[in-house]
Structure formats: structure tokens, C-alpha cells
Simulated scan of single mutants.
Amino acid sequence: MADRKQQYEQVYGKLQADVEGVRGRRDITPQAKRVAIARAYAQARDKLRAAQQADVDAYQSKRTGLERRLFGAEKATGTDAISRRDARDRAKKFEDPTEAIGAFKHAQRDGDSVLAQAIALHAAEMATSPVGRVDPKWQGVVSAYAESSPGKADIYRELTELRSPTTFAEAPYYSVMKPSELGVMKEPDIDRLAATDLDIGGVDPA
């Protein structure tokens, strides 16, 4: 996954340079300047959007791989498949992490590894919010599972260190501020302006 901050600085730096270059030109009309700036902005915006999507895909792939290693991904058939589905359904009913950890420990005592695993997987899904905040109580369930399973602790640690590109903390690295020339224009309007067939022209075209 690319260095998000460095990537943002490169794209934003180029946008600033392009915009300042257009602003300083005296050989084109004000409308041509707006079009040129709209094109520069749209190009930078789209590049960061594409970068975010690529990072999201890489993050999801990495997370899925780690979760498979942590919680198991072997195919189950017959009664085993039914047992796993039942365990997942039961685990998803837990909305309180305190109840979940209690059920997890009870399943461990009973030797019900399928249910214990299902509860841990549910806890992992509940542990992180869309803005990246981690709920320590839910995370505690997953931690207990990892610590009680041989070879799982390192995988769990790697999983907790992953950072989603869609969290509040990461979002600023995937967007750029609109140049003042574009005012309060909405994105579709900017796209239409950038897509006009106006030839910027001039002695020193942008």
C-alpha cells in the first residue's frame, strides 16, 4: 500500500503549481482560466479517488487474508456446515461485548470451538467503527481468542495494525480543496466545465 501522505503531497503540490501557473497567465481569457483550473482540479481529485480505491482493495484483501488465517477458512460440508452457520447466527445476536465474552468463555469451557470461533469473528467485525475507532471491549474478545489459540497472536497483532483508507483519520489524504476560482461549484458542475471543448489557446497554453 502506497505511502498515503507522500502520495497526497505529490498530487496536491502539482495541483497548486498548475493552478498558480494558470493564474499567472495573461494571454488567456478569465473563462479559459476557469476551464484550465477545473481540469487541473478534476485530474488531481480523480487521481486521489483512484488511489483510495486501490488502497481500499489492498486493505480488504489483506484483512480478508488475515481473518482467514485467524478464524479459519476451511470448507465445511454436511452437518459441519450447518453447525458453522448456526454458530454464526448465534454469535451475531450478541450486541453487548460483556455478554459476548461470557459466551465465548462458556463455549471454550464446553469445548465448543466452532461457537467460540464464531463469537470471536463477530467481535472482530464489531470492534472497529467506520471512522476507525476501536472498541476495547469487543477487541478484548478477539484478543482472548487469539491468545488461546496456538500461533494466532502474531496474526491478530498484524490485523489490529491495519488501517482502513476510509477512516476519518485517513480521509484527508484522498481529497483536495477546490481552488477559489471554482467557488461553491458542485462536483458534477466542475466536471461539465472541465469537459467543455474550449481550447485554452494562448501563447503559453496550460
Rank of each mutant, 00 (worst) to 15 (best):
R4M: 15
R4F: 15
V11R: 01
L15H: 09
A17S: 14
V22E: 00
R23P: 08
R26C: 06
R26P: 04
A32M: 12
A32P: 11
V35L: 01
V35T: 01
A36H: 01
A40Y: 02
L48Y: 01
A51I: 14
V56I: 11
Y59N: 09
G65V: 03
L66K: 13
A73C: 04
A76D: 10
A76L: 15
T77P: 03
A81M: 03
I82S: 15
S83D: 12
R84S: 06
R84H: 09
R85G: 08
D86W: 01
A87K: 03
D89T: 07
R90W: 07
K92W: 14
K92E: 13
F94D: 02
E95C: 05
D96R: 11
S113K: 14
V114Q: 07
V114R: 11
L121E: 09
H122T: 09
H122I: 05
T128D: 09
P130I: 08
V134R: 14
V134N: 04
Q139C: 06
V142H: 03
S143G: 02
S143R: 11
A144N: 00
A146W: 02
A146I: 05
S148I: 03
P150R: 07
D154P: 01
D154M: 07
I155D: 05
Y156T: 04
Y174C: 06
P188F: 08
I190N: 01
D191A: 11
R192D: 08
L198G: 08
G201I: 03
P205H: 09
